[in-house]
Amino acid sequence: MAAVTLLEARALTRHFGGLRAVDGVDFDLAQGEIHALIGPNGAGKTTFVSLLCGRVPVQSGSIRFAGQDITRLPAHARVRAGIAYTFQITAIYARLSVLDNIALAVQSRGASHLAAESMAALDRVGLASRADMLAGELSYGHQRLLEVAMGLALRPRLLILDEPTQGLANSEIDAFKDLVRGVVPDMTVLLIEHNMDVVMDLAQRITVLNFGQVLATGTPDEIRANPAVQSAYLGG
């Protein structure tokens, strides 16, 4: 893949006290790929992507996104620059309507036809008929879907999904996979995922994190065949 690099992180580090949550990570994302980030619980996956999207301040190292150094850019400005993050723990506005939730994402990128584009964004994930419900009244699966829809509605260049299929039924997972396949190569997707079937189905490349460090990066086949990965994670 002779692709353009969308994002590059160098020696990215974040410690919490003595805990090396992210410890000198070098990482590249190619434009238009689906890149999965896997690793055992507590490996530092969420912390790592939080550094990328600005939720957690970088301790040392640097991040370039679309040719620009964003290491010190505040989170909201990174969103404007094209990095969207969907939360591992569902974070929607439970007391607002589904339509208001999506409209907040649509208007953030400056839409000209707010109402129509909001409905279109809901339609894309099959939630249009629930537009007037309170988001908190949606089923768990639909709440996850709304969260993803809000990320998509920002029309980011990079969409970071933090365990999006957690708690979804199998039928919902299939629909989700189709959804993600449909957004590339317009968007680039960085996917944190524990479900190995989803990872192997979707990802073109996989990075394995362990104890805050990169254990391996490669295609799904390379990762499957990697003995270090097998002993740390896959085999276990």
Partner: peptide, 17 residues
């Protein structure tokens, strides 16, 4: 709507830009 969003969930709003 954005004012209400701040009230309801500041972190979420920040991550919407």
């Amino acid at each position: 709507r954005v004012m209400v969003a701040m009230r309801e969930n500041e972190e979420r709003s920040r991550m919407l830009g």
